[in-house]
Design a protein around this nucleic acid. Structure first.
Length: 301
DNA sequence: AACGGGCTCAACCGCTGGGAA
DNA sequence: TTTCCCAGCGGTTGAGCCCGT
């Protein structure tokens, strides 16, 4: 008996999301929060399946997403993590705040793979390509032995589920138990969290730096500052959003940054200077705002 | 200007695991 | 224990963009 499809696909829209659909989804999530995704399209008035809505939100519309290319530091982190846990993109993404597994997976396949190959490193094994061939036979033998051992003594801790088989070789920095892997996860997370942003290699070359004083017109949270008309425009997305009286904005300094053509909104900055909401229109519809979260965070510090 | 090949990345597909009934 | 639903995951696809000819 097969699994039921995630939704009734008849009449469901597929393909790229339109700005209108994005608006509906953002509006719904901001108003109601994330609930049962299956119910979202119906409640939000979308002809999409719940799964599509969830993916669109998590991979593109989510407020805490960073945009733009991965920095050198992030890239190195991805490489390090990949060498230890393989293609577990969501796990890797969890170490890079604001990055999605899809984004990292794409970046790996389009950039890092080539980069490593250019450097003479096998992206699968993270070993020098020249030595890979020599080791492949040894690996094969070792894997055969491991398979025999597994048949004789089943693993109580399924380390094979955590670690890439290629990382089981002694010369790689591999932990031998799940506990150690988890501890390593924690260590790496905390390392990333506490990294000095000035030394982190964040790439600020990709976008022109804008000093905060050049772009900010901070205003204290107040009833008047939550007026849609303060920032809205008849030809922009935010103006059309049915955000309930901006009550959800009451904690923010209501900083909204507009594209030159006022066709998109990018950031809302709260009192702590955190970016809370970012809207990035489809790349073929309007030029992307030249300010991204990196730049902004960097500017604040 | 037109064409074609390569590249990028958003979106989709199918599968898995967890949890509820 | 079994069945079903749901969210999440990783692999794959294809439309649109870019760039060289």
């Amino acid at each position: 008996m097969g699994r039921q499809p995630c939704c009734d696909k008849v009449g469901m829209k597929k393909g790229p999301w339109t700005a209108e659909e994005d608006k509906k989804l953002i509006n719904f999530i901001l108003t109601n929060g994330q609930c049962c995704w299956r119910a979202v399209p119906k409640l939000a008035g979308l002809l999409r399946c719940g799964k599509s809505c969830r993916l669109r939100w998590t991979n593109y519309l989510r407020p805490d997403l960073k945009r733009g290319l991965l920095s050198e530091h992030e890239e190195q982190l991805v490489i390090d993590l990949h060498s230890q846990i393989g293609n577990r993109w969501s796990k890797i993404a969890s170490h890079l705040p604001g990055r999605t597994d899809n984004e990292i997976k794409n970046h790996w396949n389009t950039h890092i793979k080539k980069k490593l190959k250019k450097m003479g490193i096998d992206p699968l094994t993270h070993k020098l390509l020249s030595t890979t061939d020599q080791q492949s036979q040894q690996q094969q033998k070792q894997q055969e032995q491991e398979q025999k051992q597994q048949l004789q003594t089943p693993l109580t801790n399924d380390i094979s589920d955590i670690l890439d088989p290629n990382d089981k070789e002694p010369e790689t920095p591999v932990q031998s138990t799940i506990t150690e892997v988890k501890e390593e996860d924690k260590r790496m997370t905390s390392t990333f969290d506490t990294v000095d942003i000035m030394d982190s290699g964040f790439c600020i070359d990709d976008v022109p730096l804008i000093e905060p004083h050049e772009i900010l017109a901070p205003c204290a949270p107040s009833a008047s500052s939550s007026s849609r008309n303060s920032y809205g425009s008849s030809n922009n997305i935010l103006g059309d959003l049915e955000i309930p009286d901006f009550e959800w904005l009451s904690d923010y300094n209501n900083m909204i940054l507009w594209d030159d053509d006022l066709s998109s909104w990018d950031l809302l900055i709260n009192d702590d200077g955190d970016s809370q909401l970012a809207y990035d229109p489809p790349r073929n519809q309007c030029p992307r705002m030249v300010l991204d979260q990196y730049t902004w965070t960097y500017g604040l510090i």
